[in-house]
Simulated scan of single mutants.
Amino acid sequence: MNTLDIPSRNLMKAKMDSGEVAVGMIVRIMRGVEIAAIAKGAGFDSLYIDLEHCSFSLETVSQISLTAVAMGVTPLVRVAGLDKADIGRTLETGAQGIIVPHVENRDQAEQIVEAAKFPPKGDRSLLGINAHTLFKGGPAVEIMEKMNQATLVTAMIESVNAVENADEIASVDGIDMLLVGTNDLCNSLGIPGELGSERVLEAYEHVAAACRARGKHLGVGGLNSRPEIARELIKKGARYVSAGSDTGILMAAATATAQAFR
């Protein structure tokens, strides 16, 4: 098998590029690889491990990511911040993309691409024999090109300032998606919890316009409790939606089951 046969194609990215909607589940408490099988069985296109809000080790991230890829589910990881070393190490585990929270401007977006992409797009250090190549070697240029294509880079838009700068963030080559974090955006707007506010929808419209203008994908986050709003945003061009977390799904099902027997 030569390097061109390495199964590192990002199925979620391919689905969005074809105009379809990808649905993801956030992972915060399920540390076993079984969560990848659950995501596949339930019909999710992707899962993303939320290192901003959980205590997982990179070993856990690696095990879940490798299993997800084998299952045909795209593993993404929300890193805690802009740290270049953290982004590189996270991708080395086998994750097929990163989600970076609280991106505010073009400069930060450029830093993210530099950390996540190999030359010539970025400055990520190359370990030629890695999880993405099934630990096979090959021509460096070929490996870097293929891995750059397979790595989905997402900037989260979570503040008034970020919304205002959405076009310049989306203009950065190597940024694939802008994912709006609706809850933190509400906080920034001074309307905590008002997910359906006109001001929130106006912010989404602004980010959606930037994505259309720059050929980037729009992602919807934090609206799992308001699927009717998420559906409207999908009609406006969103190609990714986070449909809830393992914590929320488990609690909702557990609560409903307990109530059914009382």
Results as ranks from 00 to 15, higher is better:
R89C: 00
Q259S: 11
S125I: 00
D173W: 09
F56E: 11
H132S: 10
A95V: 06
V27A: 03
I38Y: 07
T90W: 02
T74R: 02
T93I: 02
A238P: 06
S62R: 11
Y204Q: 08
G181N: 09
A39I: 10
S171T: 13
S188T: 09
N130Y: 04
E168H: 06
L189Q: 13
L179Y: 11
E34F: 08
A213D: 05
E114C: 03
I169G: 05
N183L: 00
V113F: 09
T3G: 04
R89L: 11
R106W: 01
L66V: 07
D50P: 00
E20G: 08
A166P: 14
S197R: 07
I64F: 03
R106L: 06
V69A: 07
I38M: 10
V21A: 04
M147C: 00
M177I: 10
L82R: 13
V113T: 06
S125P: 01
K84D: 00
A95S: 10
E168I: 11
R212E: 11
I38T: 08
A260C: 06
G43F: 12
V180H: 12
F44M: 06
I112Y: 00
D246F: 11
T151V: 02
G97C: 06
C186S: 05
N148Y: 14
P192T: 15
Q96C: 09
A209N: 13
S245D: 03
I175Y: 09
C54D: 11
E232K: 14
D17P: 03
N10Q: 08
A70K: 13
G138P: 15
G244F: 04
T74E: 08
E232Y: 03
E142F: 14
R89F: 00
G248F: 02
G94P: 15
V73L: 11
G196A: 12
V73I: 15
I26H: 03
K236Q: 15
A162P: 15
V241T: 13
M147I: 15
I175P: 05
N10V: 11
L47P: 14
E168P: 08
M251R: 10
M12A: 15
C186Q: 05
A22Q: 07
K40C: 06
A36Q: 02
T151A: 01
I234S: 05
G41C: 11
M30S: 15
A14M: 12
I143V: 15
R226A: 12
T3R: 01
E145T: 15
G19S: 07
L178C: 01
I35T: 13
I29D: 05
R239G: 07
S245N: 07
V172C: 08
H102V: 01
G244H: 02
A36C: 06
I26P: 02
G41K: 13
D173P: 12
T257K: 08
L178E: 14
V141C: 04
R212L: 09
M16K: 04
E92R: 10
E20H: 04
V172Q: 01
I129K: 05
K84S: 06
L250H: 04
V21Q: 06
S159R: 05
K13M: 12
I169M: 11
K84R: 08
E34W: 12
R239W: 03
R9H: 10
A95F: 04
T151F: 09
K216T: 11
H132F: 02
A230Q: 05
P139C: 10
E158Q: 12
A116N: 06
A68E: 09
A253M: 00
N187Y: 14
T154A: 00
V103A: 03
L11H: 12
T151I: 12
P120E: 06
A109S: 15
I64Q: 03
A140L: 14
G237P: 10
